[in-house]
């Protein structure tokens, strides 16, 4: 009970922190809008479904990297000391992953709307596509939160998150793209089910690894 309330208050804190410094949040929104707009200007109209799908997920990938990059960098030494004395590392990692998953889901949904507005919408099975958005957000969030914790421990090199993150994200990214492609084509659930189960397993694996490994990153 106490754990849940601690995690919940940490999530609220993350939200307030982002909301207070609007520049960060609006920067990400601007990023989503600008990349889709650039695609619109360069492609004019995307008729090809695989291109639509891949383009969408690549944009979401870069949005995720930008949105999650700062999450550990922004916290001062004093704040970390405060956490250290009052909270366990599990509270921090779980709250960050949940917050980023929700943030990413909102951003991905928003991205899908902007994408639809500019580049049309070939999606046939909306239920499966939203499931792809949800699972994609959760896996991007758990992977990148963990990698961002690792990168923040190294010398402050903004490119490090991308360098460390891409190879780790490849498995979930490829499965998500395939799952989402099947959803857009409106294939039967029985076709898409293996990818869904695989994605769930991958997510469980990443979450378990993050949960087990984060305490070692945390103690300075």
């Amino acid at each position: 009970m106490q754990n849940t309330s601690k995690i919940f208050s940490l999530i609220i804190k993350e939200y307030r922190y982002d909301w207070r410094s609007r520049s960060a949040l609006s920067g990400i929104l601007m990023y989503v809008f600008a990349t889709v707009f650039i695609c619109y200007l360069s492609f004019k109209n995307v008729i090809d479904i695989p291109t639509w799908n891949s383009l969408f997920w690549i944009i979401i990938l870069f949005v995720a990297i930008n949105a999650i990059a700062k999450s550990f960098m922004a916290e001062s030494q004093a704040l970390q000391l405060f956490y250290y004395s009052f909270l366990s590392p599990y509270h921090i990692i779980v709250s960050k992953i949940i917050y980023h998953a929700v943030l990413m889901f909102v951003l991905a949904t928003l991205g899908a709307f902007i994408f639809t507005f500019f580049l049309g919408n070939p999606v046939q099975s909306y239920l499966q596509f939203s499931l792809a958005l949800l699972l994609g957000s959760v896996s991007f969030s758990s992977c990148l939160t963990m990698i961002s914790a690792i990168a923040s421990r190294a010398t402050n090199n903004p490119a490090l998150l991308a360098v460390l993150g891409f190879p780790v994200l490849l498995p979930v990214l490829t499965v998500t793209i395939r799952f989402s492609k099947n959803a857009i084509d409106g294939l039967a659930w029985s076709v898409n089910q293996p990818y869904f189960i695989l994605l769930l397993c991958l997510n469980a694996l990443i979450l378990a690894l993050a949960y087990l490994l984060f305490p070692y990153l945390w103690r300075e």
């Binding site: 963990m146 990698i147 690792i150 780790v168 498995p171 694996l205 990443i206 490994l213 070692y216």
Partner: peptide
């Protein structure tokens, strides 16, 4: 070490 465990397992 943390990165190796995380990345090599996923790989």
């Amino acid at each position: 070490s943390v990165y190796a465990i995380f990345a090599f397992t996923l790989m």
